[in-house]
Amino acid sequence: MSQPSTPMPSLRNPLTLIVATTPVTSTQTGTTKRTLLGIGKNGTLPWPRIKSDMNFFARVTTRSPETKLNAMIMGRKTYYSVPKSLRPLKDRLNVVVTRDATGSVKDEVEKDVARQKEKDAEKGGDKKLPQRDALVSGGLEDALTALAQRSTGDDVENVFVIGGGEIYASSLRLSGAFGAGLRILMTRVVKKQIASGEKDDGEFDCDTFFPLSDDDLNDAEKWREASAAEVSRWVGEEVSPDWTDDGDVSIKVVGYERLS
Rank of each mutant, 00 (worst) to 15 (best):
M1P: 09
P4K: 08
T6P: 05
P9F: 10
P9L: 07
P9R: 03
L11I: 09
L11N: 02
N13S: 11
P14A: 08
T16G: 03
L17A: 14
I18C: 03
V19N: 03
T27Q: 14
G30K: 08
G30T: 09
T32I: 11
T32G: 00
G38F: 05
T44K: 13
T44R: 10
L45C: 03
I50A: 07
I50W: 09
F57K: 00
A58T: 14
T62D: 11
R63E: 07
T67K: 13
N70R: 02
M74Y: 08
G75H: 03
Y79L: 01
S85D: 13
R87Y: 02
K90I: 04
L93H: 07
L93E: 04
N94H: 07
T98I: 04
V105M: 07
D107K: 15
D107R: 13
D107I: 04
E108A: 10
V113K: 01
A114L: 13
A114W: 09
R115W: 11
E118N: 02
K119Q: 09
A121H: 10
K123M: 13
G125W: 12
R132C: 11
D133M: 12
D133K: 12
G138P: 09
G139C: 13
G139W: 14
L140S: 02
E141K: 10
L144T: 08
A148C: 12
R150H: 07
T152C: 13
D155K: 11
V159E: 06
G163W: 01
E166D: 15
Y168I: 01
G181T: 04
G181A: 03
L182I: 05
R183W: 04
M186W: 03
K191A: 10
I194R: 11
I194V: 15
A195S: 12
S196Q: 13
S196A: 14
K199N: 13
D200C: 13
F204E: 05
F210H: 02
D215R: 11
D216H: 15
N218F: 01
D219C: 07
A220P: 01
A226D: 06
V231M: 00
G236A: 11
V249A: 04
S250Y: 05
K252C: 14
G255I: 03
S260C: 14
S260A: 15
S260E: 14
